[in-house]
């Protein structure tokens, strides 16, 4: 336990330069995009004079030189404030706080689905390697891997919402239904299925192929032969001795995927009008609301760092040879 705490402390220290770099690079990178929030506001209102735009810019500090804006942003960060959104007219932290749970729920569900189904499929494929089951699953995995998420999302809506009418086509819950307790939970779950599945499919394919390859590699290890020679059943050998060892590369990759899943969430949340960070980020890009975008980028980099710490701990638990340092 002391080792775990030491690891956490070390990682926290190492995260500081990473976060600073993320903030600096993102801040100046975003300046490269043409236009600012005042332009977007003006475009939205349909009519704006030079004077009102200048007043807007002065009000939000957009008329300052980039470096001054940067200093004031850093000043905000040091006070644990993410700034203020001109477009939504509220503090960025509150805006993000409202959207974060939805995205975390979507990501966690998608990742769990991807791991569960992907690992199962990978194990099945490796057990039937080269035979029909393996071939069929390989083709399906390749399909999931190569079809873009937004198209899968749209097709899922067409099939399950429009044609069959089984599941809702968007949103996070039935608006105005006023449900509580179990019916509410069920309603949320029904809304979650389609976006989570369309986000997960790509990762299911990756994990399935990874686990298959990893299992086939582990299969020829001496200790697997030992396990068989002990008289263990094929299931025990496969799950206890092979899968446990084959999971290590999966945890590494899954940790790196958290960032990618957040990226995928942008598309999926837009398709399913899911109220989450991804869609907020998308709107912030379109409307040049850089303070919101910076806040989201900062938060997601923290999220990725945190998940990687978790992966380190998980790997040390999976493989005792990996020492926590």
């Amino acid at each position: 336990m002391a080792r775990v705490l030491r690891t956490l402390r070390r990682t926290a220290w190492q995260a500081i330069p990473t976060v600073i770099a993320v903030v600096v690079i993102d801040f100046f990178l975003l300046r490269l995009a043409p236009g600012d929030a005042a332009d977007a506001l003006a475009a939205e209102s349909g009519s704006a004079t030079e004077e009102t735009m200048a007043a807007l810019r002065a009000h939000f500090g957009l008329d300052q030189p980039a470096f001054v804006q940067f200093l004031s942003y850093i000043g905000n960060l040091l006070h644990f404030s993410l700034g203020f959104s001109p477009l939504y007219n509220m503090p960025v932290s509150r805006l993000i706080g409202e959207r974060l749970p939805g995205t975390l729920l979507l990501m966690a569900t998608a990742l769990s689905l991807a791991l569960l189904i992907g690992i199962t499929a990978g194990v099945v494929m490796s057990m039937f390697a080269g035979r029909l089951t393996d071939r069929v699953l390989s083709v399906i995995a390749l399909l999931f891997y190569s079809v873009p998420g937004f198209w899968i999302g749209l097709m899922l809506i067409v099939l399950f919402s429009v044609r069959l009418g089984w599941l809702p086509s968007g949103g996070a819950e039935t608006i105005g239904a006023g449900l509580t307790g179990w019916p509410w939970l069920l309603d949320r779950a029904r809304h979650l299925i389609l976006p989570a599945v369309s986000l997960a499919l790509f990762f299911i394919a990756i994990y399935a192929r990874l686990v298959r390859a990893s299992m086939l590699e582990v299969r020829d290890q001496d200790y697997v032969r030992t396990a068989t020679a002990k008289g263990l059943s094929r299931t025990a050998v496969t799950l206890r001795h092979m899968l446990w060892n084959a999971l290590l590369p999966v945890t590494t990759v899954a940790g790196m995927h958290v960032g990618a899943i957040l990226g995928g969430a942008v598309v999926v949340e837009t398709v399913f009008s899911w109220p989450g960070l991804g869609r907020l980020a998308f709107e912030a890009v379109l409307k040049r609301d850089f303070s919101v975008l910076l806040g989201i980028l900062l938060l997601s980099s923290l999220l990725v760092i945190a998940v990687n710490v978790l992966v380190d701990l998980l790997q040390a638990w999976l493989d005792p040879r990996i020492a926590l340092r």
Partner: peptide, 12 residues
Amino acid sequence: FQEPMTSLNPVL
């Protein structure tokens, strides 16, 4: 078996 170094499962 011949190879005691690799014949035991490293994670159990």
